[in-house]
């Protein structure tokens, strides 16, 4: 079973997304701060990361960059309300696999996860 890390400061959204992904067979750790996300990642054991960009404290871009520095191949998916911003483009430049808008097109997200993770 693939293990996912979701980082988003919107508690309601993150819990709903975690519940859906768990229902679809993923093991999910959902966190609401990027600092917490970094700490969880340092322990390792995740197969993919889904993160928001605009979060208080550590910006999502910093999280993406930190992930890339310690784990060059870990799939990173971005979920953001600002899909056309330079931040989204920079996240892709840092190595994020794809940027999804909010509300999340769930089927597309699921398909992307399926393509990114080894079966």
């Amino acid at each position: 079973m693939s293990r996912l890390l979701i980082v988003d400061d919107d508690r309601v959204g993150v819990s709903a997304l975690a519940a859906l992904l768990e229902d679809d067979g993923y093991q999910v750790v959902a966190l609401t701060s990027s600092a917490g996300g970094l700490e969880a990642l340092s322990a390792g054991g995740f197969d993919a990361v889904i993160t928001d960009l605009e979060m208080p404290g550590l910006h999502g871009l910093e999280l993406v960059r930190a992930i890339r520095e310690c784990s060059p191949t870990l799939p990173i998916l971005i979920v953001t309300g600002y899909t056309n911003s330079p931040a989204a483009a920079t996240a892709v430049a840092y190595g994020a696999r794809r940027v999804f808008p909010k509300p999340v097109p769930y089927e597309d997200l699921l398909a992307e996860l399926g393509a990114a993770l080894p079966h």
């Binding site: 309601v12 709903a16 519940a19 859906l20 979920v79 309300g81 909010k102 509300p103 999340v104 769930y106």
Partner: peptide
């Protein structure tokens, strides 16, 4: 965008 996202995902649930 965040509340709509939450609402949309909860509809699926």
């Amino acid at each position: 965008s965040d509340p709509i996202n939450g609402l949309s995902l909860h509809c699926r649930l």
